[in-house]
Computed example of a mutant assay.
Amino acid sequence: MLQVRIAPLPDGLHQESLEPTADDFGLDPETFSDITVDLNLDVGVDRVLAAYTVRSTARLECDRTLDLYDQEIEGSHAVLFSATAEEADDDVRPLPQDATHIDVADSVRDTLLLAVPLRKVSPAARAAEIPTEFGASSEDGIADDRWEALRALRGDDTD
């Protein structure tokens, strides 16, 4: 849970910086560390707009080398808590009239998970050259002598 107290806040803009742990979101603390949430609250009558930016250091496994590396990730999102909302969805949540707190944990967790890159390539692997030719080259241009057996079946000794 990542609850933010809204009861004492007057109407207007408010800023908070939070430092939750990975456990607050049900995430692996070995994967996500140094989490910070910069939260901007726009409080009005019967509504609270919570816009935030979440940053973290993520321990990722490189797709090329399978080595573990750390990468800074960041994501932003906004959620409206409204007294007129009847059902919750991704961007609008109900706000009871007597609410003293809002819980932004689910939204922040989802934003953090979406900030993890799909293609994870470590800085060391980005600098490494990727081989594009395999096998030994031959005089007739065939780099792989396994093709010779197929050529013999065709009865084609020359190109």
Rank of each mutant, 00 (worst) to 15 (best):
A51H: 04
A51S: 14
Y52V: 10
Y52C: 05
Y52W: 13
Y52L: 06
T53W: 00
T53P: 02
V54R: 12
V54A: 10
R55D: 15
S56E: 01
T57G: 12
T57A: 11
A58H: 02
A58Q: 00
R59Y: 08
L60E: 00
L60S: 06
E61L: 11
E61I: 14
C62M: 04
C62L: 00
C62E: 03
T65V: 09
T65Q: 10
L66A: 05
D67R: 14
D67Q: 06
D67A: 09
L68N: 01
L68S: 15
L68G: 07
Y69W: 01
Y69I: 09
D70L: 01
D70Q: 11
D70W: 05
Q71Y: 02
Q71C: 02
Q71G: 00
Q71V: 06
E72G: 02
E72S: 07
I73E: 02
I73G: 00
G75S: 12
G75E: 15
G75R: 06
G75T: 11
H77W: 13
H77T: 10
H77N: 15
H77F: 12
H77L: 11
H77C: 06
A78C: 08
A78T: 06
V79D: 11
V79C: 15
V79T: 10
L80C: 04
L80R: 11
L80N: 12
F81M: 05
F81R: 01
F81C: 07
S82A: 15
A83G: 13
A83V: 10
T84V: 15
A85I: 04
A85M: 11
E86S: 08
E86N: 08
E87A: 14
E87P: 14
A88Q: 12
D89L: 08
D89W: 03
D90S: 00
V92I: 12
V92E: 01
R93L: 11
P94G: 05
P94H: 04
L95Q: 09
P96S: 08
Q97S: 12
A99D: 10
H101T: 14
H101V: 15
I102F: 07
I102Q: 06
D103H: 13
D103S: 10
A105T: 06
A105R: 00
D106P: 11
D106V: 08
S107P: 07
S107C: 09
S107N: 09
V108F: 01
R109W: 00
R109C: 01
